[in-house]
Simulated scan of single mutants.
Amino acid sequence: MGSLSDVHGDANRQLPEFPLDPVMEARNLNVFYGDFHAVHDVNLAYGKNEITAMIGPSGCGKSTVLRCLNRMNDLVASARVEGEVIYHEQNIYARDVDPIAVRTHVGMVFQKPNPFPKSIYDNIAYGPRVTGMKVDNMDDLVEGALRGAALWDEVKDKLKQSAYGLSGGQQQRLCIARTIATKPDVILMDEPCSALDPIATARVEDLMLQLRDDYTLIVVTHNMQQAARVSDRTAFFTARPDETTGNRTGLLVEYDLTAKIFSNPGNQQTEDYISGRFG
């Protein structure tokens, strides 16, 4: 385990044991797909200007939890969410809350880069246009978003060219720029580097650490080294099989400062996963 704890890039960043003023909280969160209980009783708090990593074996519910945080599971017909997700003291699952409005405040970057079949410029301008966002100067907004995603210098001379002409790593940073163009508060990332090569992965990880100054980031990753390198806190999930059906229900096992999770976890299941004994 020592090699993982050694790579944590922010071991000297002083944070309280628990987020004192969380931007988001999952409270007694349960998720069902039809009769299948996918996630059981998750309680998590996500700190402001922090990066929280959610790790665990496949099928443990971490991506399902992530999609609950901006109501993406609403788009799955069989999905049912119980419990609360609190964003700035409001339950985003309350009846009077518009899920589209939620997604303007809680943006999402997906596993595979998914630029629109438009120019680089129009990819960035799309969100502000369709949401009716008040923009004084779209050129400035596009430039600011691309600079925020560390992409401006690479694309400033080809803004009218198709986004499909960019490399995979550039496309993912474009998607990050597209997300921050609508000025969200929280950025969700679902395996943002799994389709990228090591060099592109390093660029995105560096970008995540820069974005933390202005945003709260919540990241699902299978890459434990990545969680150790970039996150402030880590939540470890596992899956409990149903003895009758074999279906696996996701459970939160442990949540703590990343440096502690990777050096001195409080749960044996966490230690077994971190050390490679299972998963």
Results as ranks from 00 to 15, higher is better:
9 G>F: 04
13 R>Q: 11
15 L>M: 06
20 L>F: 07
23 V>M: 07
23 V>T: 13
32 F>V: 00
41 D>N: 13
42 V>I: 09
47 G>M: 03
56 G>Y: 08
63 S>D: 02
71 R>V: 03
72 M>G: 06
73 N>V: 15
79 A>Q: 08
80 R>T: 13
80 R>K: 15
81 V>I: 14
83 G>A: 10
83 G>D: 05
85 V>A: 08
85 V>G: 08
90 Q>Y: 08
98 D>H: 10
101 A>P: 01
116 F>R: 01
119 S>M: 01
128 P>D: 01
129 R>G: 01
136 D>V: 05
137 N>Q: 08
139 D>E: 14
142 V>C: 09
147 R>M: 09
154 E>I: 13
156 K>D: 05
163 A>M: 05
167 S>Y: 00
168 G>S: 05
171 Q>P: 01
173 R>A: 07
173 R>P: 00
176 I>M: 00
180 I>Q: 02
185 D>V: 13
197 D>F: 09
200 A>W: 07
202 A>S: 15
205 E>H: 11
206 D>T: 15
206 D>I: 07
207 L>A: 06
213 D>S: 10
219 V>N: 03
234 T>Q: 11
242 D>N: 14
243 E>Y: 06
248 R>Y: 02
249 T>R: 00
250 G>C: 10
252 L>I: 06
252 L>Q: 04
254 E>Q: 05
256 D>F: 00
266 G>A: 14
268 Q>T: 15
278 F>S: 14
